[in-house]
Design a protein around this nucleic acid. Structure first.
Lengths: 183, 183
DNA sequence: TAATTTGTTTAAATTTTATTAAACAAATTA
DNA sequence: TAATTTGTTTAATAAAATTTAAACAAATTA
């Protein structure tokens, strides 16, 4: 089929949008190439194979394969089975809010896990020193101060847990509705 | 002053916590070295100079200077003036919730700006093609479909704008209070 | 004003990350 | 079973980032 003017313009604007989408993903730590894979899938009406994507983004099959794995892990892309086809097919999750939800929940949970472990390790040590009457006063003061820090950090962990729960369950939408409310 | 057992233990645990803090910052795209600079400042009772920080994190002065600039930009650290002292002094913002607020608001706004520009560029092009009776049917269909995508994306932009506003103003705390509520 | 201190910029070196071609393994088909 | 197709892993290369020493500029002090 011959390329006509309107279809060229459409492609051009899709490329502008794909670039912008990829750039926003860079903000959240994704490579621009991986962002473009997502962008190409976003604008595809039909599920695409690795080879089809490879063609569009001009990358090696290995890179596309790796990129897709990353996008599958963050749930921005999923594999679909296509009847009669042997190759794997991929589609983009087009709901941007859902993508942000998934991303944030994952990050906040990882953060929580990391901090939680360290706090649990440090807390008893500070507690012991704070209560040890044979310890020097400076150390006991230090320990007490650090216990205060830890208590504050624990409040933070609790807060991000409640935030990620509200995000994951969709409860957040009762506070910030998906649709703009009427005036 | 001689190092005694409790003070060594305290330092050890602070290092564990600094590592954890730095790791969580890595999750959000910050270098582990920059994360450690923040961690060191977090546990310092007094404002610190570049040279003092440099000593603690074992990095070059230039690296510490660059790291501090990054932390200043993200508002995780601020400069304080110390009477009678010529050197700049730095302190950490210790409120983790505030740090997350600042980070998210900044990212969401950047994302909004990027996508908004691309959408504004593409929308009139799609609209023209969708309405152009001389354009081929396939292109007109494509254009209409893309306009739907853009409308959904605009809803997303609106949502993240409302989310970042709620974050920035602190309105979010009426929905997810800082302190855990009583049972 | 000259010397010193302080912080940043620059340019080179190092380290890390991303990319790819080729090798490989698994599944499918002939 | 042999040949082919498909997707991933590996090892080498290329690209990007971090880091640093040295040069620099600005401010301060002697």
């Amino acid at each position: 089929m011959e390329k006509n003017d309107p279809s060229k313009k459409i492609e051009e604007m899709q490329d502008v949008l794909i670039s912008a989408i990829a750039q926003t993903m860079v903000l959240y730590g994704v490579t621009v190439s991986v962002g473009r894979i997502y962008g190409v899938l976003y604008f595809s009406d039909a599920p695409m194979t690795i080879d089809e994507i490879k063609e569009e983004v001009a990358m090696s099959k290995a890179s596309v394969s790796n990129g897709l794995r990353e996008l599958l892990e963050t749930e921005m892309v999923s594999k679909v089975w296509k009847k009669g086809e042997r190759k794997d097919h991929y589609i983009a999750e087009k709901d941007f809010i859902r993508n942000l939800q998934t991303f944030l929940v994952k990050k906040l949970r990882q953060e929580r896990t990391l901090l939680y472990k360290a706090i649990e390790q440090a807390k008893p040590v500070f507690r012991d020193i704070a209560q040890d009457e044979r310890a020097d006063e400076t150390s006991r003061e230090q320990a007490k101060q650090n216990l205060t820090h830890l208590a504050e950090a624990e409040q933070y962990l609790d807060w991000i847990m409640r935030l990620s729960n509200a995000m994951e369950s969709g409860e957040i939408f009762t506070f910030i509705p998906k649709e703009k409310e009427e005036d």
